[in-house]
Design a protein around this nucleic acid. Structure first.
Length: 540
DNA sequence: CAGTGAGCGAGCTTCCGCTTGACTT
């Protein structure tokens, strides 16, 4: 990790800067934002060890991560160690024999522009944090904090709470029609249209007023729904349309830190913190690859191992002709490592390691194993059938889903934030009917529906949103969630993150007086600028 | 002269991102 950093406060600033106005920042804002670097106390012993080792070395190999922070670590090492022997910078994105040997044959120098980009990022975060936090101490309460990442995180949560407070629910009614086919099979369908006009769904209501957004829809109340049910009992119904559409589903990409935390939260109920602790343990004991990564890429040996397992466990039908490659769709991905996957070749089977692992570790390992294997399996194939039934001026519809070939679903189904949607994902089989077939009416049941306010963020959905906005890094997602709770901005209610009044006060103050700093695009714009620095196109 | 309370000044809080070993309970 980093062995040098800005001083934490005025106390750690070297004596010659002690009296300066900017000492508390550790950045000379009076002279071109020159940063002051120190070796923190807990890193001194590491630096001593490195210096000792360097004395007997004929060569210095810098093999830190190939990303912005990793490049900076290499640069700081050179600054501190002042090596007199030749220095080579090695880069590899996976810890495999092949990758390391390759790296040894193609060393490079330190990329100074990338180092300047990191330094800029560090200074910006310090200035934001150490200038804005004291403002909150004076205006709201001591010990509060603000920062490029945490302040946007609480703004997301407060914004969602505002939407919930402004929310006005709406209630509407429809009918569940119960029919029998010519072969006496039961068929239930929902009223979707009446006299040519569509019935509303939840999306048709404005969440702030509870009123319909358009007026060409049929809004039924309870008496109207009951009257309609009575009237339709004597109507004649026919199948007017049977739509049959094939579909395929692709497996999800292998895990990154963010997706692992989300899935472990949804499927195992782990907090981000617990997921990372368990993963760290699995990593240190050689069960999985590195757990702080934003890459979905698999090393060639891992692809081979996964494909071997697919063939032996599920058979050739489940193996795609060619290995699958996953593109990172995440903004600002730096891809210094592989995806998170079982270590080694071949992968150990979960059953074979169950005895060596505690319950948490086993469940997380199994999740990683299945996701990795599934990512190299064939698409699932099926078809979706939609039946439309008409009679008495009313139109009913029902959809069913059939899986013809499960493919990767044999190994892994991605979890969902929305349990209803997950239920709807299950296979639903419909009786066979033909267009024009007449149906017997068994009855109509009026059903009421109420719109729901937008849900609060969970740890999983907050992490996903931050990642989508390019905010935070794999090593910090879990820490962000801890920080906003430690500062009393947010508390957990079950899985939900609920903002406190302090959070409302802080967000409102920042929105009113420092709007650009809490803009959701602030980090994305910063990243664009840092990229320009690393391409030598902008001043740091 | 002792005890009390008001007033003042000094010192502290805080960022993000990379990591693992040291320390406490």
């Amino acid at each position: 990790g980093h062995i040098r950093d800005l001083p934490k406060g005025a106390k750690e600033v070297p004596a010659k800067y002690k009296g300066e106005d900017w000492a508390y920042l550790g950045v000379n804002v009076e002279d071109d934002f020159e940063p002051v670097y120190i070796v923190p106390k807990d890193k001194k012993s590491q630096v001593t060890k490195l210096k000792q080792a360097l004395k007997e070395a004929e060569d210095l190999l810098l093999a830190t991560d190939e990303d912005r922070e990793g490049e900076a670590i290499s640069w700081h090492l050179c600054e501190v160690l002042k090596p007199k022997v030749p220095v080579r910078r090695l880069v590899f994105h996976e810890i495999t024999r092949e990758a390391i040997e390759e790296a040894l044959e193609h060393p490079r120098g330190i990329d100074e522009a990338l180092v300047r980009a990191q330094e800029t990022r560090r200074i910006l975060d310090r200035l934001f944090g150490y200038e804005v936090s004291p403002l909150l101490w004076r205006k709201i309460r001591p010990k509060l904090s603000a920062g490029r990442v945490q302040s946007v995180a609480i703004r997301l949560i407060v914004d969602r709470e505002r939407e919930r407070m402004a929310f006005r629910s709406a209630t509407w009614w429809d009918l569940l029609g119960d029919f029998a086919t010519e072969r006496s099979e039961r068929l239930q369908a929902t009223l979707v249209r009446l006299e040519g006009k569509r019935l509303p769904t939840g999306k048709d209501f404005d969440p702030r007023t509870g009123k319909l957004r358009q007026d060409d829809l049929v809004l039924l109340d309870e008496p109207a729904a009951r009257a309609l049910a009575d009237r339709l009992r004597s109507a004649e119904f026919r199948v007017v349309k049977v739509e049959d559409r094939p579909f395929t589903m692709r497996p999800a990409a292998p895990f990154t830190t963010s997706t692992l935390q989300q899935e472990a939260n949804r499927k195992l109920g782990f907090t981000a913190r617990r997921t990372m602790q368990v993963a760290q343990n699995l990593y240190e004991n050689g069960y999985i690859t590195y757990m702080r990564t934003d890459s979905t890429n698999l090393a060639q040996v891992a692809v081979d191992a996964a494909r071997d397992l697919v063939r032996s466990q599920y058979g050739d039908d489940y193996l795609p002709e060619r290995p699958r490659q996953y593109q990172s769709k995440v903004k600002n991905a730096q891809e210094a490592h592989e995806a998170i996957r079982p270590a080694g070749h071949p992968f150990k089977l979960p059953e074979s390691v169950q005895g060596e692992l505690d319950r948490d570790a086993f469940r997380l390992f199994e999740l990683i194993w299945k996701r990795t294997i599934a990512s190299q399996m064939a698409d699932a194939r099926g078809h979706r059938v939609t039946i439309t039934i008409a009679g008495g001026g009313a139109e009913f519809q029902v959809s069913g889903k059939t899986i013809d070939f499960p493919g990767f679903l044999r190994a892994y189904v991605e979890g969902s934030d929305d349990p209803d949607a997950e239920l709807a994902d299950q296979e639903t089989l419909l009786p066979r009917v033909r267009e024009g077939e007449s149906l017997e009416v068994l009855g109509f049941e009026p059903k009421s529906h109420t719109t729901q306010p937008p849900p609060r963020y969970s740890e999983a959905s907050l992490t996903r949103t931050l990642e989508e906005l390019g905010i935070g890094r794999p090593s910090t997602y879990a820490a962000i969630i801890d920080t906003i709770q430690a500062r009393d901005y947010v508390f957990k209610k079950g899985n939900a993150l609920v903002p406190t009044w302090t959070a409302f006060a802080v967000v409102r103050l920042l929105e009113e007086h420092l709007p650009s700093l809490v803009d959701y695009q602030f980090t994305a714009q910063m990243e664009d600028y840092l990229d320009a620095i690393s391409r030598h196109e902008a001043e740091h």
